[in-house]
Amino acid sequence: MSIPTSYLLALSAMLFIIGAVGVLTRRNTIVIFMSIELMLNSANLAFITFARAFESLTGQVMVFFVIAVAAAEVAVGLALIVTIFKSKRSIDIDQISDLRG
């Protein structure tokens, strides 16, 4: 009658992989950050799918927490990017290599 669970999980996996490839290929720190958001979002989709399939609200509550944690993470991460930009005048990930041993 409706969407098979495996299709939804496959979509979630596709979005996660696109996000992972984004983290691996892009060098703009902000775009890398957005790729991480995309991966979090795909995990949320899997949570919602399982919540629906198992008819348990715990999955949806977990998504609520993931969104709250993502908001906190973005606030701190963007503050870090602004601070790095202030000292380096660039947000290219290749320029941020001061900790190289």
């Binding site: 892009r26 060098r27 703009n28 720190t29 902000i30 950050f33 957005m34 958001e37 979002n41 969104i67 993502a70 908001a71 973005v74 606030a75 963007l78 990017i81 602004v82 930009f85 660039s90 947000i91 290219d92």
Partner: peptide, 23 residues
């Protein structure tokens, strides 16, 4: 929260830094 608040924060930072084409 996501499409509204978080992504607007991204837009603010990109425009603040002028980092549209950083690569």
């Amino acid at each position: 929260v996501y499409a509204g608040a978080i992504m607007v924060l991204f837009l603010f930072v990109i425009m603040l830094l002028g980092a549209e084409k950083a690569e």
